[in-house]
Design a protein around this nucleic acid. Structure first.
Lengths: 227, 227
DNA sequence: GGCCGAATGGCACTCAGTACCCTCCGATCG
DNA sequence: CGATCGGAGGGTACTGAGTGCCATTCGGCC
């Protein structure tokens, strides 16, 4: 029944457009009563995102299940990959929906509220894990936003290409950037054999970013970057 | 007229709640025709955010006006401070609105779409400035999201405290965190007199974050952190 | 005084969403 | 075997947001 309604809705949305399709049109095509539509979908927008509620529940469960042994940032990145999988499981549907939401302002607004709930789930989890750090809630909010932005950047680029190419790889790249910007990279690098020693000299009082840049260029001169 | 409508709307929203107030109630109290309401505000939600349209225009103008001489990240942070000023110019109004949006889901969704437009403006600007960097659009999107998240974190904490305390200082702290995470800090630190030299030794091949942590602890031992 | 254009008010309409009640159907129990 | 009960679906009427259209009014202008 849910699926019948979703199928009817998308058929009409694609041939007439979202706003030109009324709920009455959908239920007429699906051959069910108008009241039933609102039993399955609280609003007309919901029929466009039929799987996000379940995905959000899965994601919060995933985060709640993870113990202290996981790096917080890596755990959140894995949770984001869960969302990506929902999209890649059904590329054709995802691409259609993307085209729809891109051009209907009302759907874009609705999608924002969905994405916001994912971001809040990330932030809540990170707030818990960062409770002992200074500015824990700030870090949590910023990191959550960065992860969501990176994920969406890669996802949207994949959707724009009609589902061609490797979405997973693109998202990994994007999340890798976030991990390189914030703290420790995900799979705690298995302490490789130290091969060499590099000495970095910096003036005390210089800003940290300059020190880091110096290190990076020194490493680049003397050997492959460990990053 | 706009102000009369806003005043009437907020009076009713505060005494009955947002959803219990109809547009007819508002126009009756303001003594104007129902049709006029929708001439000034495209939707009922818009009356809650009467100044964002102007602020958004100011902000895009501010970003468009900035030349190459500004650090991109610092410029975006300054743009965010522009938004903050809109809130702090009218603390009582901002706090009332915050309480309203916090408990009305429809208003929260609308606020998200407003915030999203700010974030898009940031991202578009940064995409232009990062056009030559590798992964420029990714960096732009992630940095824009981080700036917005940091700004909102500080702003919301100020709003929760009923407008007590220094919002500017809190936002500066939050934006400072973002600037420390991404590239060069804003006001290029005026090359202070080097007083001392510190030598850091690290094994080559160790992950960069470990090197940085080593530097931080070394600096903490030998003198005040430059960060 | 007549004229014009912009701002406003009024009316009627569409459509999303809700409250309430009805029917149908299968299962369970006396 | 028949009565009952509960849940899924259907129907009707209502509220309220948002829109299109037209009448009115008011200010300046010729």
């Amino acid at each position: 029944m849910r699926e019948a309604l979703v199928a009817a809705a998308f058929q009409l949305f694609l041939e007439r457009g979202y706003e030109q399709t009324t709920v009455d049109d959908i239920v007429a095509l699906a051959g069910v009563g108008r009241r039933s539509f609102f039993r399955y979908f609280p609003s007309k927008e919901d029929v466009v995102f039929p799987d996000h509620e379940r995905c959000l529940a899965d994601m919060t469960a995933f985060l709640a299940a993870g113990g202290e042994e996981h790096e917080p940032l890596a755990r959140v990145c894995d949770a984001a990959r869960l969302v990506l999988r929902m999209y890649t499981e059904n590329p054709a549907f995802s691409v259609q929906r993307y085209r729809l939401t891109k051009q209907v302002p009302g759907l874009r607004a609705y999608e924002l509220s969905v994405v916001w709930r994912y971001e809040r789930a990330f932030a809540e989890y990170l707030r818990g894990r960062f409770a002992d750090r200074p500015d824990g809630t700030l870090r949590a909010d910023v990191v959550a936003a960065a992860v969501v932005a990176a994920h969406n950047n890669a996802l949207r680029s994949w959707l724009r290409s009609d589902g061609e190419g490797d979405a997973t790889e693109a998202v990994d790249r994007a999340l890798g950037y976030v991990q390189s910007a914030f703290g420790e990279p995900a799979p705690a690098p298995p302490a490789e054999e130290p091969e060499d020693v590099v000495v970095v000299v910096s003036r005390r009082g210089a800003p940290l970013w300059r020190v880091v840049r110096e290190i990076e260029s020194t490493l680049a001169r003397t050997g492959p970057s460990p990053n």
